[in-house]
Structures are given as C-alpha cells and as structure tokens.
C-alpha cells in the first residue's frame, strides 16, 4: 500500500511517500501564505521523486500546526501523535522524543506500543524554539549554520538572563559591546533554549533512549548544549525533519 504524509510546519512543509512502510521519497519546501496550495506542491514534489502520481496514493495523512485546512488529506494526526509514531517506527527503543522546530518545541514520553504517556509543549514563543537562534545569529552577523558551529568553540558559559528572544537580543548587543566572543554568545543562546527544552524533557521523563527530531536537530551547537543539560547523548535520525511526516503517513495506512 502506498501512503503519503504531509507535515505542515511553521517554517517548512514536508511530504513523504511510503510504500508498505518503506520511505520511497521525501520533499521539503518553505511555507508561505497559501497553505493548501503549498501542501499540494510539497506532495507533488515527493510524488515526482517517487515517480508516482496522486492516484497511486491510497491514503494521505497530514499533521502540523496548520493541518486542519488540507482538504485532500483523509487522515489528520496530531503533531505529538505523528512524532511518536514516526520516531518509534524508525527507532523502536526510543521512549522520549524531543522535537524542536522553528516555532515550537515539544517533549513526548511514550510506551513501546506508541501510547503517549505525557508531553509538554512550547509554542508561539520564539524563546523556546528555533527562531530564537535565527534572530540571534542575525544579531551577531553569522549564518545559522556558522552560528551553530561556532558555539562548539566556546570556552566559557555565560548565562543569558532574558527569557524573551527580543530582550535577549538587547542582552546580546551588550555582550558584543563587552567584547564577548561570538562563540560564547552562540553557546549562551543555545544553552538558553536547551534549558527550556530540557526542563520539558525532564518533566515528561527521560527514557534510556532519547530521540531528537525536527529541523533544529541539525544544529550541532544546540545538540551539544542539550546533551550536557540532559547528561546523555540524544539520538538523531539522519533526516530529522521528516519524522512527523513519516508518522502521518504511517497513521494514514492504519
């Protein structure tokens, strides 16, 4: 059976095509105003890569923040549900899933059969999500990738007191004036996000295997801060953005 999963993220839209549970193709595009059209575009891109057409797909599952408005999908899955399903499918030993996207952070605790025990969410506040690094990297004139990497070269940890991405920016400007190195500033930012994310992860409970997914899993600086805070090494899938979409496609198959 061929199913598709679409994950309507706040910054990007992901689509995957599954055949009997195996990933045939995946596609990611930037989001924009016309969600429905873009969802279709993301799906068409994935279908093209899989050399299939829409009529080959039996079921379409959709998840993400704007998931309600996609009329051509026949199954809607919550983000938490899709994350857990996708994560457990690829990594059966995982009990705690952390998902950090552009605008949200989530921590989910689940049982071996995919039942969700507890979860915590931060959404709609940039301070606990990826957008925070984006605006901070702009403040110190580095690309997001450079910002992530330079964080690893930090020699000292400085606390960032502001709990708001806007106020943190003024604080960072102060640090620049005080001649703090870019590495230490980047680390301070990643430590700040990590503190909030790990508070959520600890609240839901840390299993032996913790999986980090979402676009921010590619940020090596944040990963380093998280590992330190959680005192373990998080597992990261090769393509961490697509787990939610895979979960949605799996749900559609049921």
């Amino acid at each position: 059976m061929i199913t598709a999963g679409i994950d309507m993220g706040s910054a990007t839209i992901k689509a995957v095509i599954l055949k009997d549970g195996k990933v045939l193709a995946q596609n990611i595009i930037d989001t924009g105003r016309e969600k429905e059209k873009l969802a279709k575009e993301a799906l068409d891109g994935a279908l093209k890569k899989a050399k299939l057409s829409l009529s080959d797909v039996e079921h379409i599952g959709v998840t993400g923040v704007g998931y309600k408005i996609i009329p051509f999908a026949d199954k809607q899955v919550t983000v938490v549900g899709a994350d857990a399903k996708g994560a457990l499918y690829l990594f059966p030993s995982v009990r705690t899933v952390i998902d950090i996207g552009a605008e949200e952070g989530r921590a989910i605790k689940c049982t071996p059969d995919g039942r969700i025990v507890d979860f915590a969410i931060n959404e709609k506040c940039a301070a606990g999500a990826g957008s925070f690094t984006e605006s901070m990297s702009r403040a110190i004139e580095l690309s997001v990738q450079e910002f992530a990497k330079v964080s690893l070269e930090s020699t000292q940890s400085i606390p960032l007191n502001a709990q708001c991405a806007v106020f943190a920016e003024s604080e960072v400007v102060g640090l620049i004036h005080a001649k703090t190195s870019k590495a230490d500033i980047a680390r301070a930012v990643h430590d700040g996000i990590s503190a909030r994310i790990s508070a959520m992860a600890r609240t839901v409970g840390l299993g032996k295997d913790v999986l980090l997914i979402g676009g921010m899993a590619r940020n090596v600086g944040l990963v380093a801060s998280l590992n330190k805070d959680l005192e373990l090494e998080v597992m990261i899938p090769k393509e961490p953005e697509f787990i939610g979409a895979i979960g949605a496609a799996l749900s559609a198959a049921e």
Binding site: Q163, M200, R202
Partner: peptide
C-alpha cells in the same frame, strides 16, 4: 518569576 512555566512543569504533569 520569568521562568514559572518551566519551573512548575514537574509539579504539573499532563498524564498523572
């Protein structure tokens, strides 16, 4: 005061 959401989380679990 500015961190209450996160600080109080362990006292307010969702599932229990």
């Amino acid at each position: 005061r500015q961190k209450l959401k996160y600080l109080c989380m362990p006292c307010k679990p969702a599932g229990r």
